[in-house]
């Protein structure tokens, strides 16, 4: 099989970031509406309907695509908001919607048979049988694979799943299976699954206590950083916790995913698209990361050596990882 072109899918939390991503060389931009229907529902972020219309028009003028993430799980009695988001994304000309909830997938596939559906990583489809469920019943065309698979496992999935595979290439790496972690709502009451927000800002406190910076989520101490030590996100999965009297990063160290060094093997594995994480990040981040990946992918296409662009300064803890792509992470 000839390895195909790797599509670069980039985050945009604001219209300015969407333009920045496209100017930096994104093939596709993903973004969401400014409400709980998307999994990065942070204050001041995301697109109202007019922003979305303009953003899609801008991308299409440049020959690029826009995916609208409607990738959270409506609570009982609240499904109408998600239905409206799907309807609006279709009406505004989105190239695809990224969905996770079975009910929302069912609605979109019945109501908008021509709308391209992508399966969100939040659906946590970690095996070919789960993928077949979404493919056969809702006609998904692409799935974003959970960040828990090794490259050989991805290759096996791609060979059997019957839809395009999108994998994470760069950004923050949760260690829990996506869409299956409610630690944050246990402490704050707002849910990553249904409110689209992990470690909601109104429950996060950064306090300076003597020489330490203390991070609390819902009043629960997540971490204490001595001066000059690299900091982590205030999410429970990056907390420093104590077991048997020993403090440690029990779930994961503050590190960020970067697959630049294994791009050729992901391409060989038959992956269709690479996803940059970070709709909550600034357009400065978007510009730098997208530009770097554009250069790396162009070099890979030409058979030229990797430009070796260093992005380590942008990731959590200033440290990069291959995450689950390499054996031993589990």
């Amino acid at each position: 099989m000839t390895p195909r072109y790797l599509e670069l899918v980039c985050p945009a939390g604001t219209p300015a970031a969407l333009r920045a991503a496209i100017e930096a060389g994104a093939d596709t931009v993903y973004c969401g509406f400014a409400d709980a229907t998307n999994a990065r529902n942070y204050p001041g972020l995301n697109f109202d309907r007019d922003d979305m219309k303009e953003g899609i028009a801008f991308a299409h003028r440049h020959g690029r695509h826009v995916l609208v993430a409607i990738n959270t799980f409506p609570r009982a009695g609240e499904t109408a908001i998600w239905h409206r988001a799907v309807d609006d994304a279709a009406a505004l000309g989105a190239d695809a919607v990224i969905l996770a909830d079975i009910g929302v997938l069912d609605y979109a596939s019945r109501r908008h048979p021509d709308l391209r559906l992508h399966l969100s990583v939040q659906a946590a489809a970690s095996n070919p049988i789960s993928l077949a469920f979404y493919r056969e019943r809702f006609g998904i065309r692409r799935a974003v694979l959970p960040r828990v698979l090794t490259v050989p496992e991805i290759a096996h999935m791609v060979a059997t799943m019957g839809v395009e595979a999108e994998v994470f290439a760069f950004g923050s790496l949760g260690t829990m299976t996506e869409g299956r972690c409610i630690l944050s709502s246990y402490m704050t009451g707002r849910s990553p699954s249904s409110d689209g927000v992990c470690a909601p800002a109104e429950h996060v406190r950064f306090d300076e206590e003597g020489e330490e910076m203390v991070i609390r989520l819902g009043g629960i101490t997540m971490n204490r950083f001595p001066r000059n030590q690299a900091a982590a996100y205030p999410t429970p999965c990056k907390a420093r916790l104590v077991t048997r009297g020993v403090p440690s990063y029990l779930f994961d160290e503050p590190v960020g995913l970067n697959v630049i060094d294994i791009l050729p093997s992901l391409k060989e594995a038959g992956v269709t698209a690479l996803k940059i994480e970070g709709r909550q990040r600034s357009r400065a981040y978007v510009t730098q990361v997208v530009r770097a990946f554009r250069a790396e992918l162009d070099a890979l296409d030409r058979g030229a050596p990797s430009p070796g662009i260093d992005l380590s300064g942008l990731v959590e803890g200033g440290k990069e990882t291959f995450g689950a792509y390499k054996k031993g992470w589990r």
């Binding site: 800002a201 109104e202 996060v204 950064f206 306090d207 300076e208 900091a231 300064g313």
Partner: peptide
């Protein structure tokens, strides 16, 4: 990028995080 300067501790933000 604010997250970057937060990770590296070049920026400290205290008070109302929202």
């Amino acid at each position: 990028d604010s997250d970057t300067v937060y990770f590296t501790r070049e920026l400290s933000v205290t008070g109302d995080t929202e």
